[in-house]
């Protein structure tokens, strides 16, 4: 940690307080907009002190509360399992790539990086997953495509191992007769909690925020929709029905009753709050990794 004078410590706090406000105020605005009466919103725009409150947006979202809660369940399940697998696979791939002297490690690193630049596109990926692996309409459809491992995270983690884990520590462990796996688990990982926390956070957020897998691969089993699927569908449909109403004359929706802007805001709130609740617990890993063994770099 950087050691600095008292005066120098004030500056970071001041700056961070300002930045925090910059991030929190819009969320607050969202929150207020989501409980503002729709007509008031239309007439007066967004306000921190709305003239008239209404819970209609939340009523609309939770009117099918069963759907919403089941979708929360699906999302939690997928996020937890997916993140665990993601972190595991990332560690296992990144660690050997960080070991100096591993033959062909640059080739493999290149192959990992290459996937970040080139991809076959949605259609071939879809054809493969739906017609070769048949994961459509199963829970695997939410877990496997795209998010199970990110090459970006692999490279980040490899970098961390390279710069923060001294070779001497690993060599020492091996001299003690530890296997590669044992060295990884008992020596390297305890020193790597910050990066594991980061990768876990990135992976978890990716799963939490994802609605594309559900959209592409869930056709009939709508009970497998994640919360983001339910919310984005609500959003898309309201938007679509309200905006193209004239072309769909026959769709007898009492659209006056559906708050559109408010629902959007409420949806954002409903999707963000759980992350805000869980995130502080993940932060525990953002402490200095413990160095095991007496060797220091």
């Amino acid at each position: 940690m950087i050691t600095s004078s008292k005066a120098a410590k004030i500056i970071p706090n001041v700056v961070l307080v300002i930045l925090t406000l910059l991030c929190v105020i819009p969320l607050l605005l969202l929150l207020m907009a989501s409980i503002t009466d729709e007509q008031t919103l239309t007439m007066n725009g967004y306000s921190f002190f709305p003239a008239k409150f209404s819970a209609a947006s939340y009523q609309y979202i939770f009117k099918a509360s069963q759907t919403v809660f089941r979708a929360y369940g699906v999302t939690f399940f997928v996020t937890i399992i997916g993140t665990a697998c993601n972190v595991l696979m990332t560690v296992l791939l990144a660690y050997p790539l960080a070991r100096p002297g591993l033959p062909a490690r640059n080739v493999i690193a290149f192959l990992v990086f290459f996937t970040m630049l080139f991809n076959g596109g949605l259609v071939p990926t879809y054809i493969m997953y739906s017609q070769v692996f048949h994961i459509r309409d199963t829970i695997f459809a939410l877990l496997i495509p795209t998010f199970l491992m990110s090459p970006f995270n692999v490279i980040l983690m490899r970098n961390y191992f390279k710069t923060n884990i001294p070779d001497a520590i690993i060599e020492a462990a091996k001299l003690d007769g530890a296997s590669e796996l044992k060295t990884l688990i008992e020596v390297v990982l305890p020193m790597s909690t910050p990066i594991i926390g980061t990768v876990g956070l990135m992976a978890g957020l990716a799963y939490w925020n994802d609605w594309t897998n559900g959209l592409y691969y869930i056709v009939k089993r709508t009970d497998l929709y994640s919360i983001q699927n339910v919310l984005t569908n609500m959003l898309n449909n309201i938007q679509f029905l309200k905006s193209s109403a004239q072309q769909l004359q026959g769709v007898n929706l009492e659209m006056g009753a559906i708050p559109s802007v408010g629902v959007r805001m409420a949806i954002a709130v409903v999707a963000v709050i759980p992350v805000m609740v869980v995130y502080p617990f993940i932060q525990k890993s953002f402490v200095k990794g413990i160095v095991i063994g007496g060797v220091k770099g």
């Binding site: 259609v123 879809y126 017609q131 959209l215 592409y216 569908n233 959003l235 898309n236 449909n237 679509f240």
Partner: peptide, 23 residues
């Protein structure tokens, strides 16, 4: 009946019709 939510129609139809899928 395969229900396609109208807001997703473009995306879903594009995939469902791609290459030999008889959904």
């Amino acid at each position: 009946l395969i229900t396609i939510e109208i807001g997703n129609a473009s995306q879903q139809m594009n995939l469902l019709l791609a290459g030999g899928d008889d959904t």
